[in-house]
């Protein structure tokens, strides 16, 4: 009993818990920036740590050690408190993701509900963060963030429906297990290999919007509204907001990996126990970074869209496509 609790504590705090997740977040931040830079023929972060790997961590520490300025027009309580608790929902969300094994740290029959709920909560937090800072730029950024949530919520959820229908369950472990095995002896039965590729593309586009990366970085468009909802934050609050954005990247990409790329699945070579867990993790990381690279390349090749174009494009193309697709899948009976 005690060893169970100890194991749980170890898991939740050290590995694969908070510390690990935060490291992964900073790692993703570094990777995104490094690849983004290399695509533009720049060097990218290269000073903090080997190849600049510690850049995200360095940024966090440096920002956190700066003076925190609270504008007079801001809502004092929300402005001070909310940034600190902002990363928490995402960390909880990441606990649902099966990284080390087939089962996440938290598992329930309704995993997907929780994940969708957390994704929405995160955007809601952004809106409140922007609104509470009392700046007009932030307000515009917050309203844009809200508009994106409304526009991309439906395609995102509908794209998630495909794996659910195939697995016939809302539990992530079931969804992962449904992707086990191979077709024709060599092709893994991942959702992305087949009709699910449409859902995966929809998911990627919605994910970019959720992550507020180009071309959907309108809520914090630097050259238009000077940083949008993050504008007024400084010091420790801003450090937590940075952390939250990095964590969001981990969260959203992990969902994609689990739902469409078979999560931690891969050839096991008959290994079991801790070795298998490690192997699962290696597979998961490979897939994770592959999706990250794809996202980076997409976002570096496009200009920022206007919020009108985003809303219009989402409601007139993405949403109908996703609805038609899901109806098709339902009719065909979860191919």
């Amino acid at each position: 009993m005690i060893s169970d609790i100890a194991l749980f504590l170890f898991q939740s705090i050290v590995f694969p818990g908070v510390f690990f997740i935060v490291t992964l977040a900073f790692g993703s931040n570094w990777m995104y920036r490094k690849i983004y830079a290399r695509l533009q023929r720049r060097v990218g972060p290269d000073s903090a740590g080997k190849y600049g790997f510690m850049q995200g961590f360095a940024d966090f520490l440096k920002t956190a050690s700066k003076e925190e300025i609270v504008p007079r027009s801001a809502n004092q309580v929300i402005f001070r408190v909310l940034p600190i608790i902002a990363p928490v929902p995402i960390i909880v969300g990441i606990f649902f993701i099966p990284m080390m094994g087939l089962r996440g740290m938290i598992s329930s029959p309704g995993d997907i509900y929780a994940i969708v709920f957390i994704l929405t909560i995160v955007t809601a937090i952004e809106i409140v963060l922007g609104w509470s800072s009392g700046s007009k730029y932030s307000l515009i950024g917050a309203s844009r963030s809200g508009m994106q949530l409304v526009s991309f919520g439906i395609p995102l959820i509908f794209s998630m429906l495909y794996p659910i229908i195939r697995a016939g369950s809302f539990n992530l472990m079931d969804i992962v297990l449904a992707q086990d095995g191979t077709n024709f002896g060599f092709l893994p039965r991942w959702n992305v290999l087949g009709l699910g590729v449409i859902a995966f593309v929809l998911f990627l586009i919605s994910a970019l919007a959720e992550l507020e990366k180009p071309p959907f970085d309108t809520p914090e468009a630097e050259t238009e509204i000077a940083g949008g909802w993050t504008l007024e934050y400084s010091g420790r609050s801003y450090a937590y907001i940075l952390l939250m954005e990095d964590l969001k990247m981990v969260f959203v990409i992990s969902i994609g990996v689990v739902l469409f790329l078979g999560g931690p699945l891969g050839p096991t070579f008959g290994i079991s126990g801790w070795g298998l867990a490690l192997l699962y993790f290696v597979y998961f990381s490979l897939k994770y970074f592959m999706v990250l690279i794809i996202l980076t390349i997409i976002s570096s090749g496009l200009a920022r869209l206007k919020i009108r174009q985003i809303v219009f494009g989402s409601w007139s193309f993405l949403t109908p496509i996703s609805i038609v697709f899901i109806i098709l899948v339902m009719v065909l009976g979860g191919v």
């Binding site: 695509l39 533009q40 023929r41 180009p214 071309p215 468009a221 050259t223 090749g301 200009a303 920022r304």
Partner: peptide, 16 residues
């Protein structure tokens, strides 16, 4: 102009 429309990649390519 590319930078203003949020197309930083093109901005760096041109300036390069």
């Amino acid at each position: 102009l590319a930078h203003e429309i949020g197309f930083d990649t093109f901005y760096f390519l041109v300036w390069n």
